[in-house]
Every structure is written in structure tokens, then in C-alpha cells.
Nucleic acid binder design. Structure first.
Lengths: 218, 218
DNA sequence: CCTCGAAATTGAACGTGTTCAAGAAAACTA
DNA sequence: TAGTTTTCTTGAACACGTTCAATTTCGAGG
């Protein structure tokens, strides 16, 4: 009964995500989702083990949107600065409809036991997909990033992206323009900082940084 | 009825914090707290507007503990490296009893509307108290930190402390030794990085970084 | 000592996320 | 087709955080 089943699943997910956007996380109760979708509460739980699982669904959808937008924007961006800027801005674009819901989203995602947690062992697939966007941004850049940190760069930039997301959640300025300015200001700083990797005397401290960063992750 | 009233408040808070430590956040229900303290549920709510408010109480207590331990440890630490290391380690010491509860704590604290949120406008007092610990660590350091960023340093280090805390929450290693090693590795890197502020050619990028950091906060 | 307003305390009630035994519908087997 | 197993669906029930009208306790003024 795969097809009808998938229909119900999509129906519930669709209703839930729309309600998340329109009335926020707290007001979107499981009972309201079920009622709006025309199914029973228990049936919604048959497809989504918890309300957090619906957030996971949202996370995947936003991520897919980010990947699509980034791929498009990266077509005409050659140097790392513009590639990175494009990647971050498209990420913000993908999240934009859910800003009012950002606080609850982050609170859900950050809990170590959450299925959405981007750092947790469970959601490796989702994190890898997100990381891939940054890998693409770095790998195809011309001129290329310094050899020494090319392999670590995607993860570090992804971490920066997480920090930007956190900032965005707290950003109450119109259209989150403050976050946009943060990105525009920080990206050139990052790429300029990267070129410092090549100046002599810098090698040792960079090596130490990379080795610490690796030992922490590994 | 100030005295009896304060007694009840302390009783509820004490029971709650002990239960948080012993059985975690989720299992510590308001009903269980009330029962254990020998009061009614409604009475607990008379003193604490929400369960989150009890987390706020915990936050204040941990912070006071941190301040006390840091003050002691900073007595025999002169250079910035050891002062910073002491400040961070005493912070971890103060949190230690609540590690199993860290995930829920962070999830509560990170919600923009939470009274505990360290970034939110509401909890300025709590954040300032925490910031002061880092101000002390920086200001009394010998030799002093580079003039140019001395005033920004406490806030930046506090931000780093927040990041370390986040890492600590996810750290499941024995006694969170991984976080300890992160601190021990990162602190010398930070102080070495600071001394780079004085090498020529570095000035411009540092200025840009500081001006971005200020414009973002202001 | 008595009275009265304020402070403190109670517990039932509400809406929430989640569970689960029961049943209906579909798919499969012969 | 008839019987059987698997998948899907239901809604009542549970424990939770939180609210609030009612009640008790307290302290001050007469």
C-alpha cells in the first residue's frame, strides 16, 4: 500500500510545515495538524514518531532548497569570496520563511538527543548533505584555497555557517539584514585571513590550529 | 511574612536543583518537586513562574560558583595564558555536576524568549556577571594584552566560553576530558594569536575584524 | 483580642505531546 | 474466492507544564 501510505505521509508533513510557517511551532499542535490534514492524531504519529520528527522533515526540506539555490548561484561565481558569499546568502534565503520559528527550531535541534541535531551521530546524512554544499564552494574555487587547509576548510566554514544561523535566529532587524551585513563583512575577512596562511612565520600557528581542530573532531 | 516566604522559595529551589542533578531535567517534574518539597504544585508556581525559571536559578548558582572558583584560581596566575586557562577550567568545574542535564539546559537557554538566554536583552545582569569574570582575567594580566583589542577581548573570550560550553554539552568522554583538552590546546593558540596583533601587516585585517565585530554588537 | 486586607497556599482543571490496545483496510496466499 | 497476515487508522487515556478561583495563614491597626 506504498502509494496511499506515502500520500498520507506527505499530507501530514505538508500541513505541518505550512502551519509552522504560518502560526509558528508552539501553536502548531499535533491535534491541529491532524485535524487540518483530516486524519487522527495517532495516525500522524504512525508516520512521525514525534513533533521533533516533523522539524527534521522541515530541516531536510530547507537543506534541499539551500542546495538547489546554491548550485544555481555558484554557476557564475569563480573566486572563493563570491562562492562563499553566495553559499551563505542562499542558505539564509532558504531559511527565511521560517524565521519566526527559528528559536524553537534551534532549541529542538540543539538537544543532543534530538534527531535533528546537526552535530549528533544520528543525523550524519543530513550533516553530510549540508557539508557537501560547502565542499563544492571550496573545491571549485579559482584561485584555489591554500593547499594546507583545503581539506579542513569545508568543515570549518560549515561551522561558521552554524554560527551565522544562530545569529540569524536572534536577528530581529527587518528581513534579517543585520545577518546579511555580517556575512558580507565576514566573508572577505575570512578569505583574506586564508591568504595569510602563506606568509612565513604563520605556518607553525596554523599547523597547531589545524592539528587541534583535527584531534577535537577525530 | 518575608522570612517564611523566603524559606519556601529556597526549599523549592533547593529541591529542584538537587533533582536536576540527580535525575535530570525531564524526569524532574513540577509535581515531583512539589511533592518532595512538601508543598502544592500551585505554590511552587507562586515562586517560580515556570520550570524555565528554575533553570534560571540554576544558571545563577553555577555562575556564582564559577566566579568564586575563578577568583581563587586567578590569585596565582599572572600571564594571560594561565589566567584564561584557569577561568575556563573553573567554569567547567562549576558546571560539572549538571552535565547530564546540559542538553536540556542549553535547549532552554537558547530559546530567544527564555529568561535564561545569555544573549537576550532580558538577562543583561546575568551576562554582565559572567562577562566580569573574563574582564578580570584580561585586565590584570601581566604582560598586558595588546592595547588595540584589550577592550574587545573580554566579550570575545566570553563568546569562546559559550562555544566551549556547547562543546562540553556534547562531550560524552569520561569526565568531559575532551573539553579539558580543547581548552588546554586552544588557550595557548589564542594568546599566541593575540601577539600577532603586533606584527606589521596584520594591523589592517585586525582593524577590519574589530570594526565588524563592533558593528555587529552595537 | 479582634478585624481585615494582603500574602501564601491549595488542588482541580485545561491543553499539550505521546502511547497503545483495538479495529479496519489492504495485500498476500492457497 | 476465503482465510491470513501485514499495514494503516482510530480515539481514549496518560503524565506533563501551567493556570486560577477558592481557601487558609499571616501581620498590622484598632
Amino acid at each position: 500500500m506504498t502509494v496511499k501510505s506515502e500520500q498520507t505521509r506527505q499530507l501530514v508533513a505538508g500541513v505541518a510545515l505550512r502551519m509552522f510557517r504560518e502560526i509558528g511551532f508552539a501553536k502548531t499542535t499535533m491535534r491541529a495538524i491532524a485535524a487540518e490534514a483530516g486524519v487522527s492524531v495517532g495516525n500522524a504519529y504512525y508516520y512521525f514518531a514525534s513533533k521533533d520528527d516533523l522539524v527534521q522533515e522541515l530541516y531536510l526540506q530547507v537543506q534541499a532548497e539551500h542546495a538547489a539555490r546554491a548550485a544555481e548561484a555558484l554557476k557564475d561565481a569563480a573566486d572563493l569570496t563570491s562562492r562563499l558569499r553566495a553559499t551563505l546568502h542562499t542558505g539564509l534565503d532558504a531559511m527565511a520563511p521560517y524565521h519566526r520559528f527559528g528559536g524553537d527550531f534551534i532549541a529542538t535541534a540543539i538537544r543532543p538527543t534530538s534527531p535533528v541535531n546537526p552535530f549528533a551521530a544520528g543525523s550524519t546524512a543530513a550533516r553530510e548533505a549540508s557539508l557537501d554544499i560547502f565542499r563544492t564552494a571550496v573545491e571549485a574555487a579559482k584561485p584555489p584555497a591554500p593547499k594546507k587547509l583545503r581539506s579542513d576548510l569545508p568543515e570549518l566554514l560549515w561551522l561558521f555557517y552554524m554560527a551565522v544561523t544562530l545569529f540569524w535566529v536572534y536577528d530581529t532587524s527587518d528581513g534579517q539584514q543585520r545577518t546579511r551585513r555580517l556575512v558580507d563583512g565576514a566573508v572577505p575577512l575570512i578569505t583574506r585571513g586564508l591568504s595569510l596562511a602563506r606568509v612565513p612565520g604563520m605556518g607553525r600557528i596554523l599547523d597547531d590550529f589545524l592539528s587541534l581542530s583535527r584531534s577535537i573532531r577525530g
